[in-house]
Simulated assay, not measured.
Amino acid sequence: MSLFPELDGPPSDRLFFGIFPEAPVAEAIAGRARDLKGRLGLSGAPLTPDRFHVTLHHIGDYAGLPRGIVAQALEAGEAAGAAAPFEVSFDKAASFNNRGNNPFVLQGGEGLSSLHAFQKTLGLSMAHAGLGKQVAKQFNPHVTLLYDRALAPEAAVEPVSWTVSEFVLIHSLLGQTRHIVLGRWPLKG
């Protein structure tokens, strides 16, 4: 018998911290996705611009929304919100091999050093809030553009850059392509 019977069963809810580009940048990303799809002969449909994001920490998948974990995540978000805004720049695209449902993503190099630093800061805030087990051990920042059966090799792209001025706690309804913002923190540093 589980301590949390309301959370038994197949996962239906995902919690994660993420950053989302502003609408004009998301539209530019959509343009890159269309161009790369054609240039590389991919067949998957690009995600809609409102879906483009970078996951900072995947907190977990649950059968139901675990209120205690949400409260801890909100506490962690509040603590990490004191950071300063920072720039990100994605300058290459490639596929991740996921056995047939392969994400084709934007990635970057040096243009993501501040993002790496912020992700670590958020991880420390999560650990202080009691979510240490949910802190990502590795971080490969990316923006998923589309999913495809084919694997595309790494390709340089015109950089997509923006200033990250906030981060969010997202409740994702699995299989429904719906994101509900549970917490939003402007970076004020």
Rank of each mutant, 00 (worst) to 15 (best):
G60R: 10
V54R: 07
I19S: 01
R99V: 10
L131F: 07
L65G: 10
S165N: 13
K92L: 13
P49S: 09
Q72F: 00
R14C: 03
R34A: 15
A129N: 05
A76G: 05
F139P: 10
L115I: 08
S12H: 04
A73W: 12
E27Y: 01
H116F: 15
L65F: 02
A73F: 11
G81Q: 00
K188G: 00
L122Y: 14
L56K: 07
V70G: 01
G108D: 06
A94F: 14
G68R: 14
L74H: 00
L146G: 08
T163C: 14
R39Y: 03
P141V: 06
P85M: 02
L112E: 11
A136I: 04
A73K: 08
V25Y: 07
I180Y: 12
D91I: 01
A152F: 08
K133Q: 14
N102F: 03
P5C: 08
F17P: 04
S161F: 01
P159D: 02
A84Q: 14
G109A: 02
A127M: 00
S89C: 10
T121G: 13
N98I: 00
S161N: 12
H128L: 13
E22D: 15
K37A: 14
V160K: 12
I59G: 09
S165M: 00
T48M: 10
R184T: 09
Q138H: 13
A117R: 15
G111Y: 04
S43N: 03
T144C: 10
N140Y: 10
L174R: 05
I170R: 02
E75G: 03
S172C: 07
H142M: 02
G9S: 10
M1D: 05
G64M: 05
L56G: 10
D35Y: 09
S161L: 05
I69T: 15
A33C: 10
L106K: 08
T121C: 06
L74C: 08
G109H: 07
S2W: 07
S125H: 03
R67S: 12
R178N: 02
A73C: 04
L174K: 04
R39M: 09
A23K: 14
V70N: 12
R178A: 13
A93T: 06
R51G: 04
G38N: 14
L47P: 00
G77F: 00
S161M: 00
D13P: 00
A156R: 08
E22H: 12
Q107H: 06
L174I: 15
R32A: 15
G183Q: 10
F20D: 02
K120V: 12
A63R: 11
K37H: 01
H57C: 07
E154C: 02
P11V: 04
P66T: 09
E6R: 11
S114W: 03
L115E: 11
G130A: 07
